[in-house]
């Protein structure tokens, strides 16, 4: 009997988070007395599955069907359901990405069992399992119990690092052909639109953030200048996007982007918890705020208690002066 890990991939390119799920699943499978299996679905599955044995998968199921041309939450969910029924898997694990959570929700709906999303720890016992999961995008934790014949759990992002197993597993390849109703093609990806390439808010080493304190859309020009001087990008708070000063793609936080730069310069941002969860992975935080009591200031590594409209241009000027 197995613990089945659903591996996400994009047309053959395995998602890093799938390896995190395998790393999380290895000790869990041992503790639960289950074999570790993986499933990769659709076109590109074989290419995507090359490293799975090294990461601990005893069995690698490769699911294929004419309908599985690309990602499709319902077709993937139904495939996993049929594999669970065929193999008698006792638990299914996925990464806590949008795709991983969505596929497991589909599996849960179809099997009519619970699904516990975004777990940080899982203790399997003979009967119910207990776990700690994240709420509020990570601002709060919930201890919960899970009672079900088939246990469905996703692993919160970045809880464990993707790393190969101490010794590789067998990785026996097992092709699987699900029986899929044509109606499931309604939710398969039909096209892609490429927008931008290069550094993004999520990956930039420097983020210059602005909040309500910036005051206007034009007020962001000095922040843009500083960001470009540092080879970084501009981020913002929800107060800013709500005012229409910046596009939502610049928003940092629970319902925006999680950033992890070397330094986050947060100016005119109070540091509400929903903003903070998106910013806290920054290695250094410099807060610029007129209020010394602002949450962003008290949680930052460094702070300047002053008007951002004076401080930001002064930083840019000082950098240019030193560069000559």
């Amino acid at each position: 009997m197995s613990l089945l890990v659903v591996c996400d991939h994009d047309r053959g390119h395995l998602a890093e988070a799938s390896l995190e799920a395998l790393a999380f699943g290895r000790p869990l499978a041992v503790a639960a007395g289950l074999e570790l299996a993986a499933v990769v679905i659709g076109v590109g599955a074989e290419v995507a599955s090359t490293d799975l044995a090294a990461h601990g998968a005893d069995t690698v199921h490769l699911a294929s069907h004419d309908l599985l041309t690309d990602f499709g939450p319902e077709a993937w969910g139904e495939t996993v359901v049929q594999l669970v029924r065929a193999t008698g898997a006792k638990a299914v694990l996925a990464c806590g990405t949008d795709r991983g959570n969505e596929v497991l929700a589909q599996v849960a709906a179809r099997l009519e069992v619970p699904f516990v999303a975004n777990c940080r720890t899982v203790q399997p016992t003979d009967g119910d399992w207990s776990m700690t999961r994240i709420q509020w995008g990570g601002s709060l934790l919930e201890d919960a119990t899970l009672s079900a014949d088939v246990k469905l759990v996703s692993v919160a992002h970045h809880v464990v690092e993707a790393a190969p197993a101490d010794s590789p597993a067998a990785g026996a390849v097992a092709p699987f052909r699900p029986n899929l109703d044509p109606s499931l093609s309604a939710t398969v990806v039909v096209d892609r639109v490429v927008l931008r390439q290069g550094i993004t808010l999520a990956t930039s080493p420097v983020v210059v953030g602005g909040g309500r304190g910036v005051g206007s859309a034009e007020g962001f020009e000095p922040l843009e200048e500083l960001a470009s001087e540092l080879g970084g990008v501009v981020g913002c708070s929800r107060a800013v996007t709500n005012n229409g000063w910046r596009p939502h793609s610049d928003q940092v936080g629970q319902t925006g982007t999680r950033i992890s730069p070397e330094i986050y310069i947060a100016s005119g941002i109070s540091g509400a918890i929903q903003h903070w969860v998106g910013a806290m992975a920054a290695k250094n935080i410099l807060a610029i705020n007129i209020d010394p009591e602002a949450n962003m200031v008290t949680r930052a590594d460094h702070a300047v208690i002053a008007d951002l409209h004076q401080v930001i241009p002064a930083i840019t000027a000082e950098i240019r002066r030193r560069r000559g």
Partner: peptide
């Protein structure tokens, strides 16, 4: 089949804030 046991706040690492200036 999913039951709440309790909610709690994650442990936070509190860092000292170094004030670099006031202007």
């Amino acid at each position: 089949g999913q039951e709440r046991v309790r909610l709690h706040r994650p442990v936070e690492t509190v860092s000292e804030t170094a004030i670099l200036g006031t202007g």
